[in-house]
């Protein structure tokens, strides 16, 4: 069977294999190689957390360090994509998209539609998401709903090394702009990953646990919180079904609706802030499209509507926990329509 590698290694392997397969794939970002122009070693960092380490030795100048200049180089990645390249740009922390958002949502997202279908922009923007690094309000956000709001871009947020490799390969081959969200607390998480190249299609959620009593919808790190909750709930005789969305745009509502139709109860778990979140969107769609199947009110487990705090106890309180997920499941099981 496949060997076990970390999510970080899975990303590296996906980039490596796609760069070897297709010469139009190039990578750019701040310190993705590291040490450019200095007197020390090249490939000093391989990305701020070492995700792209080693790729420079194999692919050379197709990995480009950039100035600290997100508007310019994210825009350049998008421009290069519109001119036949398949750039993978690393935005480091998704929080930094504030300084280059125009290029993402007014340029990349709009070209296809605004130019009457004649433009394609196969760019991938990789960025770290999520809290738990004690990195505070400007390096810890999810922000996934900001991107899903915008037609024209696709949003991916995997929870396992296997999904990460397959979804990143798909993102590179995909002809639309893709925001690829990597949860920084999952970089070290290991799982079985085949060595061969493979792509996982977008818009296909993964039912990671079957259960009859309630449906829990989650993505990214929250899938693991849901799995922890499932283990404790199982001791109480409660079997939850967990749907890992994997891609947020497109989103596989069919799988969610099928599960809710079966269980009659829904808990949406989202590490993004609650207002207009993925959880709110899924809740609204289920309420609209499967109201008759619901046996109880929908529950959402999210952080409070506050920025991510710095101090460890505060940040721990901020991030939705397995206990909160379990509590929400119990609540929805108690509630009911009579």
């Amino acid at each position: 069977m496949a060997r076990k590698i970390s999510m970080k290694q899975a990303i590296n392997e996906a980039l490596d294999q796609e760069m070897a397969r297709d010469p139009s794939v190039i990578c750019m970002g701040e310190d993705i190689v590291g040490g450019a122009g200095g007197e020390g070693e090249r490939d000093a960092w391989g990305g701020v957390l070492g995700v792209t380490k080693g790729l420079y030795a194999k692919h050379g100048d197709r990995l480009m360090d950039t100035p600290l200049s997100e508007s310019a180089y994210i825009g350049a990645a998008i421009g290069a994509a519109a001119c036949g390249m398949r750039p993978v740009a690393e935005l480091m922390f998704i929080d930094f998209m504030g300084v280059c958002f125009d290029q993402i949502f007014n340029q990349a997202a709009k070209f296809k539609y605004m130019f009457g279908g004649k433009a394609e922009t196969p760019v991938v923007i990789r960025a770290m998401v999520g809290a738990g690094f004690r990195a505070a309000a400007q390096h810890s956000q999810m922000l996934t709903p900001l991107f899903t709001h915008i037609p024209g871009i696709k949003v991916v947020c995997p929870s396992t090394p296997y999904d990460t490799k397959g979804l990143l390969i798909q993102a590179i081959r995909d002809n639309d702009p893709v925001i690829f969200c990597e949860h920084k607390n999952l970089y070290g998480f290991e799982g079985e990953v085949p060595e061969a190249s493979y792509a996982i299609p977008f818009g296909e959620a993964n039912v990671v646990r079957d259960g009859r009593d309630a449906t829990v919808v989650a993505y990214g790190l929250m899938v693991h919180r849901a799995l922890e909750a499932a283990a404790s709930l199982a001791k109480e005789g409660i079997e939850i079904e967990i749907v890992d969305l994997r891609t947020l745009s497109p989103i596989d509502m069919d799988t969610v609706l099928d599960s809710v139709t079966k269980t009659g109860r829904l808990v949406c778990v989202d590490e993004a802030n609650p207002r207009c979140s993925i959880a709110a969107d899924v809740s609204a769609q289920v309420a609209m499209r499967a109201f008759g199947a619901l046996k109880a009110g929908i529950e959402m487990v999210t952080p409070p509507h506050v920025p991510v705090p710095f101090s460890p106890p505060l940040e721990d309180l901020y991030i939705p926990s397995a206990a909160q997920v379990a509590a929400a499941v119990r609540k929805t099981l108690k509630g009911g329509r009579h």
Partner: peptide
């Protein structure tokens, strides 16, 4: 794009980064 015209742009200054990308390509 078949004529190399990457678009008029409603966002002032937005074309410059795109052109860096086109030049990189």
């Amino acid at each position: 794009l078949s004529k190399g015209m990457m678009g008029a742009n409603g966002i002032l200054g937005a074309g410059a980064p795109l052109v860096c990308g086109a030049a990189l390509a």
